[in-house]
Computed example of a mutant assay.
Amino acid sequence: MHPNEKLITDFYLAFKNHDPQGMTACYAKNIIFEDPAFGKIQGKRAFAMWYMLIERGGDALQIDFSEVQANDYNGSAKWTATYTYGPQKRKVVNHVVGTFSFQNGKIVQHTDHFDLWRWSQQALGFKGYLLGWTRFMKLKIQQNTSKALSSYLHKMKSFDVAF
């Protein structure tokens, strides 16, 4: 197994085990993360995102992954997250392809690709079905996730948690 395949595998095993510290140990400090829901985030915001998602997902969060491949420079994996979302506790099954770039034994760029419309239909119900494909809804989702992440970071500072 290539060392970067092991790095991706370690990342997803930590995710599966609800271990955000193990996940973020695979990242470089200046990590650039991007996906349709969060947009592009960097550094401690990317670290905090995993802590927040695992905390919010609780015991309902299930992670499966497969097709890990990597070389010296880049890699990819398919993964699925199953969890409940929002006050209505809607079940979401999100199928994702993660792509990675590496440097000095760490992940320096991580991009998750998934169908935001399909996600929004599951997470937001009828509103997601009607508007989830629009740029307006994508921006609204990104604004909401950015606000939630900022609140989470603020809360963690008050508990003196370092990312």
Score class of each variant (00 low, 15 high):
D10Y: 03
D10W: 00
L13K: 15
L13A: 11
A14Y: 01
A14S: 15
D19T: 04
P20K: 12
Q21K: 14
Q21A: 13
A25V: 00
Y27A: 01
F33V: 07
F33Y: 14
F33Q: 11
E34A: 13
G39E: 00
I41D: 04
I41P: 07
Q42W: 00
K44S: 11
A46E: 14
F47Y: 15
A48H: 06
Y51C: 07
M52S: 13
L53K: 10
I54G: 08
G57M: 02
D59R: 10
A60R: 10
I63R: 02
V68W: 04
D72L: 06
N74F: 10
A77K: 01
A77F: 01
T80C: 08
T84L: 03
Y85I: 09
G86Q: 03
G86P: 05
P87G: 05
Q88V: 13
Q88P: 11
K89G: 06
R90M: 10
K91R: 10
K91L: 09
V93T: 15
H95M: 02
H95C: 07
V96S: 07
V97K: 14
S101M: 09
I107T: 10
V108P: 02
H110G: 02
D112C: 10
H113L: 00
H113A: 00
L116C: 11
W117F: 06
W119L: 04
